[in-house]
């Protein structure tokens, strides 16, 4: 397990560096490119944390679709003047963010360890119910899919409706320009 932890540490270091590059680069297109690199770190981190379905979503959305959507968006903007490479840092904002992050990090200690057997999610009666009854009741082999698509089917339907409405709205806005 320690080798996996080491690999996770390296991956998260990469993700932090790529995120810093995405924040600090002044030209928005450069920031988008750095953000594409950031999605790699997050995707591999999800794989190492044994969540391949989330990693698949991150790979599809982070590397591909987000980049294209960002590119379509910044086509309407102009590039910043001047040759400066990096954004100027507003140190007072950094101080506020640092205080907030420090406050939030103090709560991390009370979280259960990753994969701990006595974590509330592992011992809960609901978890047990889903694990035992998901397949007989719904016929779906993956429990996560069973919960999302069967037990919370109407919730997922509502989410899908919202996403489709947002997509239609975006296409309507973009079609007014010469992007068809």
């Amino acid at each position: 397990m320690t080798t996996v932890t080491t690999a996770l540490a390296v991956v998260l270091t990469f993700a932090v560096l790529a995120a810093l590059a995405a924040i600090l680069l002044r030209d928005v297109l450069n920031a988008i490119i750095a953000f594409g690199a950031f999605s790699f770190g997050i995707s591999v981190a999800w794989v190492l944390l044994a969540a391949p379905d989330v990693a698949l979503t991150e790979a599809a959305v982070g590397a591909g679709i987000t980049t294209v959507l960002f590119l379509v968006t910044i086509a309407k903007t102009v590039r910043p003047a001047g040759e400066r490479l990096l954004e100027t840092v507003e140190w007072r904002s950094v101080a506020v963010v640092a205080v907030l992050v420090g406050a939030l990090l103090t709560t991390v200690r009370s979280l259960p360890a990753v994969g701990a057997a006595d974590a509330p999610v592992a011992t809960s009666r609901i978890t047990e119910y889903y694990l035992q009854n998901a397949y007989p009741e719904t016929g779906v082999e993956n429990v996560v899919t069973a919960v999302l698509a069967a037990y919370r089917g109407f919730d997922t339907l509502g989410e899908a409706t919202v996403v489709i409405a947002a997509g239609v709205a975006v296409v309507l806005v973009l079609r007014q320009e010469a992007y068809v």
Partner: peptide
């Protein structure tokens, strides 16, 4: 892990252009 380290080195090229 080595390939991820290579990726960390490549971040230099992303920043430096």
């Amino acid at each position: 892990s080595a390939f991820v380290l290579f990726a960390i080195v490549l971040v230099y090229r992303i920043v430096a252009g």
